[in-house]
Lab assay of single mutants.
Amino acid sequence: MPSETPQAEVGPTGCPHRSGPHSAKGSLEKGSPEDKEAKEPLWIRPDAPSRCTWQLGRPASESPHHHTAPAKSPKILPDILKKIGDTPMVRINKIGKKFGLKCELLAKCEFFNAGGSVKDRISLRMIEDAERDGTLKPGDTIIEPTSGNTGIGLALAAAVRGYRCIIVMPEKMSSEKVDVLRALGAEIVRTPTNARFDSPESHVGVAWRLKNEIPNSHILDQYRNASNPLAHYDTTADEILQQCDGKLDMLVASVGTGGTITGIARKLKEKCPGCRIIGVDPEGSILAEPEELNQTEQTTYEVEGIGYDFIPTVLDRTVVDKWFKSNDEEAFTFARMLIAQEGLLCGGSAGSTVAVAVKAAQELQEGQRCVVILPDSVRNYMTKFLSDRWMLQKGFLKEEDLTEKKPWWWHLRVQELGLSAPLTVLPTITCGHTIEILREKGFDQAPVVDEAGVILGMVTLGNMLSSLLAGKVQPSDQVGKVIYKQFKQIRLTDTLGRLSHILEMDHFALVV
């Protein structure tokens, strides 16, 4: 994948999101292997301009796509893939009243899908469409860049269908997702969380590099694949309309690839034109409109599966009536509230959605109805927002919020430890010299600072030695090549209790 991002070429006709291997024109390309080798690009942008032909009021008969309808489940399912879809609609009884809503608040519980998330729908649909058009064949390999849930859905379907599955996901995604993927037989590649989507090191860039190296491999490409919004247009939206008897006044959905909100909203605009569509985008993402909503100094966020630093091709923002931004604290607070007060075992993005819903639905009156999409299960986040310690460490809970008995030293300040200034190293000294210094002084790690004293990161003896043994660096290389740029900081005025929580999850903390 090139470091400079080429513009994806656009073909003359058809839909841009065809499933299957992508040609340089962004659509299915038939021909000899030699032709494909000559024409197939190194990668295709996940934010390529959409060429979708959908228009409100256009006859369904003019759609270029294969459409399906929700099917009634048999008493005995032939395999677990038949437990994807037909998820329950559940009334939220307490939270709406707590925040003064007059309307009825309903939750579409997508964590009841077989793999635990709304992404099971698009995973199965992308595979079925690729099999139907002859792209996927027995023994082929599926590769997908994902925040985890699409990966789980694909790995689940691949396990049943017999495909090899490789999932490329950023490091910030939970260990629970990784464990589930491994249990399903998927191979996992992790990428830096802070890598831009168009960087060769991003999950998108690495996935395309693997595709170019592995024979008979395919990126189904949830960011561009029409099967993504079509899955929701054909099934999720129809289920909502049936469950609500066609009567709903507002739908609120958090947005990642945009397939969920695009597919549902398009069908609702056709069948229930008075329904307002509300999009939820986390602070630090750029999906919301108008652009002024996205202006923030924050560039990272903890909530998973929603928000991006690019506009995915499948996201149709014209069908969203209003956007709201959400933050991590309210997302996790509301997710825990949904679990504790409503018994809905949902993930953090569901918290984002409901946090926005109780604001947006203030305009609705008694007798009206708001539906929220709860995308995934708490299963993926047992060591994250479900953990009091994690919430404390991230600053989303305060010590006084917890009532468990603490040891005698818990409320003492870090400054009472009488710490001395640490050994520091410059980023320009060599790895070999740094190892000598650390061994001589008896230290395992040291902060790396520039000549102005600005902290650049941390270097550890173990990481340097393993990097040297693996051949990633040489003793003569500058130590700046092996620094940890993500590390926890703590102030002298913070409590030892807070430091204790940090050290339970990290090997060190830097006192500043």
Rank of each mutant, 00 (worst) to 15 (best):
E4Q: 15
P6D: 09
P6R: 03
Q7N: 10
V10T: 10
V10W: 09
P12F: 06
G14Q: 10
C15H: 12
P16Q: 06
H17W: 11
R18P: 06
R18I: 11
R18V: 13
P21E: 10
A24M: 10
A24K: 10
S27N: 14
L28P: 10
E29C: 11
E29Q: 15
P33Y: 04
D35Q: 10
D35S: 08
K36G: 02
K36S: 02
E40G: 15
E40M: 03
P41M: 09
I44E: 09
I44L: 08
P49T: 11
P49G: 02
S50I: 08
R51S: 10
R51M: 07
W54R: 06
W54G: 06
L56N: 09
L56Q: 10
L56H: 09
G57R: 08
P59Q: 09
S63V: 07
H66Q: 11
T68M: 02
P70S: 14
A71I: 14
A71L: 13
K72H: 10
K72Y: 10
K83P: 09
K83N: 13
G85L: 03
D86P: 10
T87G: 02
M89S: 00
V90P: 01
N93G: 06
N93P: 08
I95P: 00
E104G: 09
L105N: 00
A107K: 03
K108Q: 04
C109I: 04
F112T: 06
G115K: 07
G116R: 07
S117R: 04
V118F: 05
V118Q: 05
K119C: 03
K119W: 00
R121Q: 04
R121F: 02
L124Q: 11
L124A: 11
R125G: 07
R125M: 06
M126S: 01
D129H: 09
E131F: 02
E131P: 04
R132L: 07
R132T: 10
R132Q: 11
D133Q: 10
G134T: 06
D140T: 07
I142Y: 00
E144M: 01
E144P: 01
E144L: 02
S147D: 04
G148D: 02
N149K: 02
N149R: 03
N149V: 00
N149H: 02
G151T: 01
G153C: 05
G153I: 03
G153S: 04
L154R: 00
A157R: 03
G162N: 04
G162W: 03
Y163M: 01
Y163H: 02
C165E: 01
M169C: 03
P170D: 02
E171T: 06
M173P: 03
S174H: 01
L181V: 07
L181W: 02
A183V: 06
A183N: 04
G185S: 04
A186R: 00
I188L: 09
V189F: 02
V189I: 09
T191L: 02
N194P: 08
A195E: 07
D198S: 08
E201F: 13
G205T: 08
G205S: 11
A207P: 01
A207I: 01
W208N: 12
W208L: 09
K211W: 07
N212V: 10
N212Q: 11
P215H: 10
N216E: 08
S217C: 05
S217H: 00
S217I: 01
S217E: 06
I219C: 01
Y223M: 06
Y223W: 01
S227D: 10
L230Q: 08
A231K: 07
D234A: 14
T235L: 11
T236C: 05
A237P: 06
Q242M: 13
Q242K: 15
Q243N: 06
Q243A: 07
C244G: 03
D245I: 08
K247N: 15
L248K: 05
D249N: 03
D249W: 02
D249R: 05
L251D: 01
V255N: 07
T257Q: 01
T257V: 01
G258I: 01
G259N: 00
T260M: 05
A265G: 13
K267S: 03
K267A: 15
E270D: 13
K271C: 11
C272W: 12
P273G: 09
